[in-house]
Write a protein that binds this DNA or RNA. Structure first.
Lengths: 128, 128
DNA sequence: CATGGCATTTACGTAAAAGTCAATTGCGCC
DNA sequence: GGCGCAATTGACTTTTACGTAAATGCCATG
């Protein structure tokens, strides 16, 4: 496991710009350490970026991603906070389960669409 | 099955604004018929809206949704077009499978996070 | 027939999530 | 110590997906 990654290493790995990484820092999603003014990304920062990209692909907004990231952190010490956290996690899971249903339905419809196309090709006498 | 739906019926059903439905029409996603100037939404239009909302929840942009919707339509008659269509469908399915992986990973991490919270509650002697 | 309630069009506004550009600044190296 | 390159900051711009306001049409109801 590497000690640190530079900003450009991460931009290459995740195919995003430096602007984007700095934007995520401004938004409080990541807090790379500094040597002088230069950002140094630890493995944990890199992992956060991975989680952010996942969230993006799933259509979550920055603030939703921020919420999710907070859920991955150490559980709070106070009972009320803990219960609230659990409630929030449950809500997000509800979100995700809805997305899963949407996903399966869409995949099923695309399967159907593809089959229609293939059938049509067969009708036209094309060797598949 | 109803003949027609009014715009407000659909806004209530899908919890979106009239502005949004008109916007989708401008974008060519739906083409409700007219009585005078008033839009009448057929069951097929309603189904399209349902598919649009699904796409939105999955984080697809309007133009991606437009592409997906075109895939649901009648397969084209020409062989080249058909093959192209099949290729595009395959690409979208790749997208969706990636999203599914992202989804499962996120769900797994949320499960973990919730368990940590529950454990913490037990440590604190709270009856769950 | 005027009032209320939807509906429509046109036009401008806006928030989120970056992209782009310019002007530095620091660092490794010869 | 000068060069070149990567990194930084800050300001401005852009795109997407609608929101909002203003002016007006259409029609049923009292």
């Amino acid at each position: 496991m590497r000690e640190y990654y530079t900003i450009t290493e991460l931009t290459r790995e995740f195919e995003i710009s430096t602007r984007t990484l700095r934007f995520y820092e401004d938004e409080g999603l990541i807090q790379p350490v500094r040597r002088g003014r230069t950002r140094l990304f630890r493995p944990s920062d890199r992992h956060l970026v991975k989680q952010i990209m996942r969230g993006k692909r799933l259509g979550f907004s920055i603030s939703e991603i921020r919420e999710i990231i907070q859920m991955y952190r150490e559980p709070p010490g106070e009972v009320g906070q803990l219960k609230l956290m659990i409630k929030r996690i449950e809500e997000k899971r509800g979100d995700l389960r809805q997305k899963r249903r949407d996903l399966e339905e869409t995949l099923a419809e695309l399967d159907q669409a593809e089959e229609s196309c293939v059938e049509r090709l067969v009708e036209l006498g094309v060797n598949t």
